[in-house]
């Protein structure tokens, strides 16, 4: 899987969307390592990335999986536009939708779901206070990283919806930080009817990251 060109993005863009970093590259590496499964077993008809930011991940997927409808949904309008630009730069196509998580999509349609969530542990009121006071976070960017208590604010909203999001054979790749308590999340997933495993993990300065691979228990 080729790493997409991102030389069209400027520092002004990174004032509004998350700049690809170690976490993005871990997610790319995990997807690449699982391509054999994705291409030959899963054969996704529909792929959705939640919160594409710069669009680097969904663009890489779209470029590789020619026979998959690739979609991206972001709450940040700037991210939707940047993702389109990243696709153009890399001569591929992703359908971009502005919305919250998967609220805008009809149920049980997604075969391949990807999410690098806002996972940083923050005070739960970070979003409110930063919007009022924080110069550098006064736009959309804070939503890309501020995760609330245990960094789980958004993750905990999404997980109970998973049964209605994924298709029967659907697979979900989720990036987590050790502070998000991955073992607790895996147990929660089991109770929701999903099996999960730590598909890849990586220590980076100051953080320990995981990629969870999640599938239905009966799949």
């Amino acid at each position: 899987m080729d790493t997409p060109h991102i030389d069209h993005l400027t520092s002004q863009d990174y004032d509004h969307v998350y700049e690809p970093a170690e976490d993005s590259f871990l997610l790319l590496d995990a997807l690449e390592a699982d391509l054999e499964f994705i291409e030959n077993e899963l054969k996704p008809v529909v792929c959705l990335e939640i919160g594409p930011g710069s669009g680097i991940i969904i663009t890489a997927i779209a470029k590789r999986l020619q026979n998959t409808i690739c979609m991206a949904c972001d709450i940040n309008p700037y991210a939707c536009r940047v993702t389109k630009r990243t696709c153009l730069r890399n001569e591929t196509h992703v359908e971009c939708v502005r919305g919250s998580l998967t609220d805008a999509f009809k149920p049980n349609a997604i075969d391949l779901l990807i999410f690098n969530p806002p996972y940083v542990v923050t005070a739960d009121n970070e979003l409110e206070t930063s919007d009022k006071f924080g110069e550098c976070t006064s736009g959309n960017l804070v939503h890309s990283w501020a995760g609330g208590k245990h960094g789980r604010r958004i993750i905990d909203i999404l997980l109970p919806q998973l049964d209605h999001i994924l298709s029967a054979k659907g697979v979900f790749y989720l990036l987590l930080l050790r502070e998000n308590k991955p073992d607790e999340i895996m147990e929660q997933l089991r109770q929701l009817g999903f099996q999960s495993k730590k598909f890849m993990e990586r220590r980076i300065p100051g953080e320990f990251l995981y990629i969870l691979k999640v599938q239905r228990l009966d799949s």
Partner: peptide, 22 residues
């Protein structure tokens, strides 16, 4: 927006909306 994507979109998340589709 391709018309395939149109087929996947719904307004069901609106409070009180039952189907929100098509």
């Amino acid at each position: 927006m391709k018309l395939s994507t149109y087929n996947f979109l719904t307004s069901k998340a609106i409070k009180g909306v039952k189907v929100g589709y098509p």
